[in-house]
């Protein structure tokens, strides 16, 4: 464990808490993409199957359970409890166009052809594009509530911090995982446009308005 990964995980946890608070407090999931939340639930389910087989640390197990539980809770809140506030008309990204290529790529490019490894690789590839429906929704509605942009900033920062963690591990532990690094780069690059808007607008108290 290193400071980059710890802050990355905390930023990830913060993002999930911000989202749950936003939905619970405002009793609305307007502006949030349910499709991205479904993708995150798939990502954590396919990545954390090793919860059953491998114990790494209490922290690792605890965080995995939290991520899986909160991702399903968010999907439940969006599609059941606060279903009436779900923005179905704008949340139209075809997630099969993300899932199918991730499955194919995981079958072709992986570290070893076992069930756990291919599922883990699939989850890495899917996570790198899982935010696209959310960014697509924000671009379609042309704006985002500030709480939603804080959520996106925390979520984008988590993988950016993981990139620093991988640099650190390469030099300090002589360890690296190219699949995770390349996917992490793609994932972080997708946020660049948003990061720019967040820093130049939201932090100045303005609303996040995308140029129409």
């Amino acid at each position: 464990m290193n400071i980059f990964r710890l802050f990355g995980d905390l930023s990830h946890l913060l993002a999930i808490i911000i989202l749950l608070l936003k939905i619970w407090k405002t009793r609305s999931c307007a502006g949030i993409s349910g499709k991205s939340q479904i993708l995150f639930a798939i990502v954590y389910t396919s990545r954390y199957l090793d919860l059953m087989t491998t114990y790494i640390s209490a922290y690792n197990t605890f965080m995995k359970i939290v991520f899986v539980a909160t991702s399903y809770a968010t999907v439940f809140l969006m599609y059941m409890k606060f279903k009436a506030t779900y923005d179905r008309n704008h949340d139209t990204f075809r997630i099969e166009f993300l899932i199918v290529p991730a499955v194919i790529l995981a079958l072709v490019i992986n570290q070893e052809f076992t069930v756990l490894e291919v599922l883990w690789t699939f989850s890495i590839y899917l996570e790198s594009v899982a935010i696209l429906p959310q960014l697509f929704l924000v671009s379609k509605t042309g704006e985002a509530e500030s709480i939603t942009s804080h959520y996106l900033f925390a979520l984008g920062s988590y993988r950016a911090l993981y990139l620093l963690n991988w640099v650190y591990r390469y030099y300090a532990e002589d360890h690296y995982d190219l699949i995770a690094i390349v996917a992490g780069l793609v994932q972080t690059v997708l946020y660049c446009d948003f990061f720019y808007l967040y820093i130049t607008k939201v932090l100045k108290g303005k609303k996040l308005q995308l140029p129409a």
């Binding site: 990964r5 995980d9 990830h12 090793d50 491998t54 790494i56 640390s57 690792n60 965080m63 995995k64 991520f67 570290q111 883990w120 993981y162 963690n165 532990e173 360890h175 995982d177 995770a180």
Partner: peptide, 10 residues
Amino acid sequence: ENYIKSKDEL
């Protein structure tokens, strides 16, 4: 050992 190293991340 190698498994733990590469899969100890979330």
